[in-house]
Design a protein around this nucleic acid. Structure first.
Lengths: 255, 255
DNA sequence: CCATCTTTGTGCACGCGTTCACAAAGACAT
DNA sequence: ATGTCTTTGTGAACGCGTGCACAAAGATGG
């Protein structure tokens, strides 16, 4: 059964903490900016400020990669850019497929940041036959029927899912079956995948709800009034003051 | 002030862990699906499976909200939907502005999940005069000059930034100055905001780089054959470790 | 009313991530 | 070369989040 995804303590290979990995792209971006300004070296303090993190945290993060700094001076920008790029695997080419060319999929296809760092859009795939052949971001959309063929031919290991929620799990399974082992999921659904497959989720709705929570908390602290609905009777169909359904029906199970 | 904050852990500690808050939308989505199937009650085990988390974690999460379950039975779906919605602040209306109506901004404007839960797109704003008046997702785009007026008139407290990286910080400052206190940032830049302003970041490029790291690691360790233990166990990917923003992040130029 | 069975709610332990604080390392001036 | 000064690299403490395991609570049946 689907249980929580236990992020295993990495392999005993090189135990770079997950939290550190998540920050490396941030450092890389800041370093690239410095590089373009021809800044030769940077201190942990400066770089940390640019990346928006604590300097001690940054130094510890870098310590997992090795000792690339020089005491009394700082870090060599170019060298660090290279090391982080290599560590993240950005020195090689990553063909990517985007499945689901709706508004979001099209926006992703056009996103510059995609091609910028080793990532190459190998194909755009959509289930709508009317989309087939239609060019999006300079690439002709292909039909879902060709999904397996595309994955295999291009050696794609990273897939992006931008389909409606209802189709996501099925698409996911086909991607995985065809050889994809990393998935970036934009559909508002929990994906179930076999061991060995990584999934990262980007969910606009969730982000907004989290913001709303904090926003409400802020407002509540300064506004003592507003009549809090006292929690009362239960067991019986309580509340449900939220009115009926609206178009969005985030299905958890593929229907 | 009558209702100061953090005064009474007696009733219920207002301190809901950030990690829990981040999962509430997930539970809510699963519960909504159950509600639409008219399922009256659900056990922590079932709900946890649907949400892709551990059942113990789910129970602990709910314990922060209060004791809404019935031992031996489970949780009342409708009641829980209401409680979580209320906790997240979704029972009220949240006017939102989207700044930067490019490919991404337009996609966001068209996103159904936006309007679905209390979030209402109050305005679409773009710096390009040619965009002004042009309808996107049924709403006429307005020029940046009117930003402050729009924020004030509509009482907007949540802003979405979908501009190029170079414009993000400036837009952010104008939003904050006009009264926005929560920002969802899609631009690949670290935003600097005053204390009291929440920022959540969605960065496609970073997500891909993290996937690339793991992908590279898999490829590199692929040596030990004999294959995986072929575990029938399937994990549910939840991933995405967001971290609660605090308001202290310097800026940096985009890459 | 009592026994049994199911499922919640939580005390506890463990591991990860963050932060402080400082010794060691190297640059630089004299 | 030697001393001083800057900045790294890291040991250690702390706090948060996670998962186990179990007692308590309530439903259910006799």
């Amino acid at each position: 059964m689907a249980t929580g995804r236990t992020h295993r303590p990495a392999t005993r290979s090189r135990g770079i903490p997950e939290a550190t990995v998540a920050r490396l792209p941030l450092y890389l971006r800041a370093l690239t900016a410095l590089s373009e300004r021809s800044v030769p070296t940077v201190s942990s303090e400066e770089l940390a400020a640019a990346a928006g993190v604590n300097s001690a945290k940054l130094r510890k993060d870098f310590s997992y990669l090795g000792s690339y700094g020089t005491r009394g001076v700082g870090y060599d920008v170019e060298y660090l850019v290279y090391q982080i790029s290599r560590e993240l695997g950005l020195t090689q080419d990553w063909p990517v497929v985007i499945v689901g060319i709706g508004n979001l999929g099209a926006a992703l296809a056009n996103y510059g940041g995609f091609a910028s760092r080793g990532f190459r859009v190998a194909a755009l795939i959509d289930a709508d036959p009317a989309m087939a052949g239609k060019p999006v971001a300079g690439i002709a959309v292909q039909h879902t029927d060709e999904l397996e063929q595309i994955i295999t031919d291009n050696g794609v290991s990273i897939g992006v899912i931008a389909t409606p929620a209802g189709a996501a799990q099925q698409v996911c399974e086909r991607l995985v079956a065809a050889g994809v082992t990393s998935i970036l999921n934009f559909a508002p659904t929990v994906l179930t995948v076999p061991d060995g497959v990584d999934v990262r989720k980007v969910d606009l709705s969730i982000e907004l709800q989290i913001l709303a929570f904090h926003e409400q908390r802020k407002a509540g602290e300064e506004t003592p009034e507003s009549g809090p609905p006292a929690p009362v009777a239960r067991t019986t169909a309580a509340a449900a003051d939220r009115k009926g359904p609206d178009g969005d029906v985030p299905a958890v199970m593929p229907a």
